[in-house]
Simulated scan of single mutants.
Amino acid sequence: MFEDPETWVAIAFVILMAGFGYLGIHRTVLTALDNRTARIKAELDDARRLKDEAAKVLGDYKARRASAEREAAAIVAGARAEAERIAADAKAKMEDFVARRTKAAESKIALAEAQAVADVRAAAAEAAVNAATRILSGTVKGDIADNLLSKGIAEVRQKLN
């Protein structure tokens, strides 16, 4: 039995444990294990606290993002409404401009038409007066003819103009 190496290892182990027990090493090992347990527990508590803080920060950022998205949607909707209003105003101004230009053109046409009619009347009156002057001067002679001719011409001019 004392020849087996396992026996000597077991005896050495028992002696070592007895020495450790006598010197109080087991208390030191237990204290170190307790300290390590406390440190691990503190690290776990810190990790839990950091996780809770991270979740809170994440919630805050999600709320901010949702708020920013709502604000962006409101800005886009406002811009669309403003663009539609500007387009409607531009369309109304363009229609008003076209109506004014059409009215001005119609006025110019009517004025030109009236001027043309007046010019034609004046030319017709002048032609009629000249024709009457030639006819009457050829048929009637003397002071009476000149007097009648002047009165007739004045009367024709007055009626035609």
Rank of each mutant, 00 (worst) to 15 (best):
N35I: 06
V129H: 01
K108E: 11
T7K: 08
A110F: 06
S137Q: 12
D119G: 04
A81P: 01
R65C: 06
A127N: 11
M1I: 13
R101N: 04
A118N: 06
D60S: 07
L160N: 05
L149R: 13
Q158V: 12
I144T: 15
G142V: 11
D96F: 12
A10L: 07
N147I: 14
E82K: 09
K51E: 15
A116V: 03
A92G: 04
F2I: 07
I86V: 15
T31K: 13
M1P: 09
I15L: 15
R121V: 00
G59K: 02
R49W: 01
F2E: 05
T139K: 06
K93P: 01
R101H: 02
R100Q: 07
I25K: 14
D52E: 13
D89Q: 15
A12N: 13
I109Q: 05
R27Y: 12
S137C: 02
A54I: 09
E43G: 06
L160R: 07
A132S: 05
I109C: 01
E6R: 14
E155W: 04
K151V: 15
A83Y: 04
V140M: 13
V76C: 02
A88M: 09
E43T: 03
A72F: 10
L149I: 09
A87G: 02
A63E: 10
L149Y: 02
V14S: 10
A124V: 11
R64T: 08
R64M: 08
E106K: 05
R49L: 04
I25P: 01
E53M: 08
N161Q: 10
L23V: 10
L44E: 13
D146E: 14
D143C: 03
A10P: 00
A72G: 03
G78F: 02
V140Q: 12
I75C: 00
L58W: 10
E84T: 03
M94N: 12
I86S: 06
V29Y: 05
K62Y: 05
A110Q: 10
A68P: 01
K51P: 02
D52M: 11
V29N: 04
D143N: 13
I11T: 11
A72M: 08
D4P: 00
D46R: 03
A116E: 06
A128P: 00
I135G: 00
A122H: 06
R80V: 04
R157M: 03
A125G: 06
L44P: 00
L160V: 11
A128Q: 01
R65L: 15
K93R: 15
A90G: 03
S67K: 09
V14K: 11
A63P: 01
T139V: 15
L136K: 04
E69T: 02
I40Y: 14
D34I: 07
D146Y: 09
A38T: 11
D52S: 14
K159I: 14
A63K: 12
D46L: 05
L58I: 13
A114C: 02
A127C: 04
D45G: 03
T28Y: 10
A105Y: 03
A145M: 05
G21H: 06
P5S: 06
V98K: 10
I153C: 02
R121Y: 00
F13S: 14
V120R: 11
A73N: 12
L160P: 01
S107H: 07
D52C: 02
